[in-house]
Structure formats: structure tokens, C-alpha cells
Simulated assay, not measured.
Amino acid sequence: MEPLDSQQMHIPHAYEMDSRQVRSFVVKNPFGHLITESLSGLRVTATPFIFETDADLEMTLVGHIAGRNRQALEMSENMKAVALLTGPDAYVSPRWYRVKPDLPTWNYVAVQIRGVLIPVDDLKERQNILARTITCMERGRAEPWSMDEATSGHVERLLPHIRAFRLRIERMEGARKLSQNKPLEERLNVIGGLQQTGEAGALCIASLMQRDAEREKAETMEATHANR
């Protein structure tokens, strides 16, 4: 097995996300999977990932998992790790193609972030990471909740039972596969098919594809007018 740091995400050029898109995706879709490798094998835990600050070029994610989780117990300084975050996804049926028949496929949005894991064992720093997570997730709500509202002593009792971490980012990659390899007419047919399913993931993918299609139409019209 190749070590985690030697593997790159497979992304055909047409589907590649730029760093701005990746960062925006992480902020809007923070829940994912922490993947590490130790002598006992691979460990995977579902958990949210939050940028440590709001700086545009922040290169550290923070998070926490249960302290009795085997992965938490095996965390070590400078351990290689991957954060895998996935967005909406949907099956694309060949029935929706009208111009040129094709095979089934899957449209999706996904991000992989690779870096070095730094365990956080200081209780005050753990509390700061919890506070940062809450602040980010409560942001924009009509009445954002803060950790100060927790029952007296509850946070202090919790801290020894979690293990927080920082993930120093070395590489961020993302794939946004939305049928970009198909002509606009076919993509519109796919959008219609996805909308007809009524499935949550399909509707989200259809919405993303619709935005891309509208932007492409606007850019085409602008280019046409500019050349007149």
C-alpha cells in the first residue's frame, strides 16, 4: 500500500476545482471523514473540519473526535492524514441523453485535503477549537448559540473525553463533476432528468448544473455582443 502522502486525487482537468472553490466548499460542507494510517492499519472517523481562522489563505483545519476512539489514541505528532469531504451526488441515466447515447455515470462534488496532523492535548486549546467550531456553525443564524450558554461545568467535564487536532494543509484538491464534458444541450437534458427524480442529491446537482449552464449562456451572449 502506498503511504497516504504519495497518493493524489484523480481529477480529470474538466472537473478540477480551483483553490477558491475548494475553500468555499469546505466552509459550506465541513462534515467529512478523517483518514489516518498507523501500524495497525487505516483509521477513518466522521467529523467536521473547520478552518482555524477566517484568513483567506488559512492553511490549517481544526477538529475533534471522541477520546476513546481508537484513531484518537493512535494520533501522533506529524502523522500524515487526509480529510475527505463530499457534497451532493447523483446517478445520471443514459435515458436522459438525446443528442448522443452514452453510458451511465455519476455526478458529484468532493474534496480531499492532505496534510500533517497535530494532536491538541492542552485543555484550553481544545476548548478554543470547540468554540471556533460552534462559532462557525452558528454564524448567520438569527440567534447564534455560544459555548457560554452551556450548563455550568459541562464543557469542562467534556474536554478530557475528546481529542482535538490541527491538520496543517499540504495539498487541497477538489472534483466538481457536473457533465462538463457534454455539450450544453445534453447538460440541459440531464438537468431535466435529475429534477424529475425529486431526490435530494439529484436536485442539488441539477441546481449546480443549472447555474453553470446559465453562466455559460451569459458568457456566450457577452462574447457575441463584443464581437459585433
Rank of each mutant, 00 (worst) to 15 (best):
G115D: 05
G115C: 02
G115Y: 01
V116C: 06
V116M: 11
L117R: 14
I118T: 14
I118C: 09
P119V: 00
P119A: 00
V120C: 04
V120E: 08
V120Y: 03
D122A: 12
D122L: 05
L123K: 09
L123S: 09
K124W: 00
K124E: 12
K124V: 06
K124N: 11
E125R: 13
E125F: 01
R126W: 01
R126E: 03
R126N: 05
Q127R: 15
N128V: 01
I129M: 10
I129W: 10
L130D: 07
L130N: 08
L130W: 09
A131V: 07
A131Y: 06
A131M: 09
A131L: 07
R132D: 06
R132M: 03
T133I: 06
T133H: 10
T133R: 09
T133F: 05
T133A: 11
I134T: 15
T135R: 14
T135V: 02
C136K: 14
C136D: 14
C136E: 15
M137N: 12
M137Y: 06
M137P: 03
M137C: 02
E138W: 08
E138V: 09
E138R: 14
R139Y: 04
R139P: 05
R139E: 13
R139I: 00
R139K: 14
G140L: 03
G140T: 01
R141S: 11
A142D: 14
P144R: 13
P144G: 11
P144H: 12
W145K: 10
S146P: 03
S146D: 12
